[in-house]
Amino acid sequence: MTDLSKITPEWVRSRKDAAQKIAALTAYDFPTARLLDEAGIPILLVGDSLAMVVLGYADTTSLRLEEFLPHLAAVARAKPRALVIADFPSGTYRTPAEALVTGKALVQAGAEAVKLEGGVEASDAIRTLVGAGIAVMAHIGLLPQSAGRRFRKVGRQSEERERILADARAVEEAGAFSVVVEAADAGLTAEITRCLRIPTIGIGSGSACDGQILVFHDLVGLFPWFRPRFAEPKADLAPLIREAARLFLAETQGKASPAPQRDSRL
């Protein structure tokens, strides 16, 4: 991207059917946000995946809003050109009124848009948020806050397929500026992408979407204990970190020569 203007929800909406697809990654802290922004990633999602890959919970449903907000604020302090989107933690948008309270808290912490799971059942909450001036990215297909760790491909059976199609139409009608489609059958995702006027951003849903999103830790091999089958890591940081720690341990215990110090900040 050569345009250095701030990424906005309107920019994302305008990328529907664009030749250059949208790339999005999760970020949960200041340095990661800085690095991904410097790389040109246009969307940074402070995702509820934080619960698993940073905080060590078994799934996303254990994440509390008060745990989530400091991570969102840290990403916002990086002041990225990228659009900062925040997930709604599980259980914080059970009614449109509750969604509005949570949405305002997320915006106050630094979110420039929000994301929540659900289609038809979430449409009233989306409509309320949009009416209050809060931009919403929707999330349909597999819903991790409902599925827990039971990850599976969805949309292969006709009844489920029709339900997800109805979800896609509902979130667009409610005013979402884009929609994440997770772990959906590739043919269904292609149909959704053709039908909607807003961009679809896929994760484990094939290549027909208007963009793709990935958990940062899956991208760089930073969570080796669990890796989704659809994730294609571009780096493998876990063994590098282990080796660096082993070298430090050996140096500290006098079993190896210390590396020359190239720069001292003290």
Rank of each mutant, 00 (worst) to 15 (best):
L106R: 04
Y93V: 00
L100V: 14
T128E: 15
G103I: 06
T92C: 10
A76F: 03
S123W: 09
A132V: 07
R163C: 00
A74F: 00
A58Q: 15
A73Y: 04
L65I: 15
I134Q: 03
T92M: 10
A170G: 06
V154Y: 02
E172S: 08
A111H: 04
G56M: 12
I126H: 02
A73M: 03
V171M: 04
A74I: 05
A138N: 06
E172P: 10
L55H: 13
S90A: 14
A97L: 04
A58C: 01
G155L: 07
T60Y: 02
V120P: 02
M137D: 00
D124K: 15
A58W: 00
T102C: 13
Q145L: 05
A73E: 13
E173Q: 14
E160K: 06
A73G: 06
R77E: 14
R149V: 14
A132C: 08
G118A: 10
F68W: 00
P70Q: 08
V154C: 12
P144I: 10
A109F: 05
R81D: 01
A51C: 10
G119V: 11
I134P: 06
D124T: 11
A138D: 04
H71N: 13
A86E: 03
L165G: 05
A113M: 03
G148Q: 08
L63N: 07
P80M: 02
V120W: 01
M52P: 07
V101D: 11
S62Q: 15
S49D: 06
P144T: 06
F68L: 07
R169A: 13
T60W: 06
L165C: 01
S62W: 13
G91K: 09
R163K: 15
Y93T: 07
K104T: 06
Y57W: 11
A168Q: 01
T128K: 15
L142A: 11
L50H: 09
A97M: 03
D124A: 15
S90P: 00
L69A: 13
L106T: 05
D167W: 09
D124G: 02
A113S: 05
L63W: 08
T61N: 09
G118E: 12
G133I: 13
R163L: 12
K115P: 00
Y93Q: 03
A147P: 03
R127M: 08
L63P: 03
A174D: 04
R77K: 14
R77W: 05
V114W: 00
K104Q: 15
R149Q: 13
Y57D: 08
I126E: 03
G103E: 07
A76Q: 02
A74D: 12
P144G: 07
A78P: 01
R150E: 14
A109S: 12
A51H: 12
A125Q: 10
F151M: 03
V84L: 04
E121V: 14
T60H: 05
D87R: 04
P89N: 05
K104N: 10
L142T: 11
E112T: 02
V75F: 01
Q145R: 14
H71Q: 13
T61L: 01
T128P: 00
T92I: 10
A125F: 04
P144Q: 05
R77Y: 03
F151R: 03
M52I: 15
T61K: 14
G103V: 01
L65Y: 09
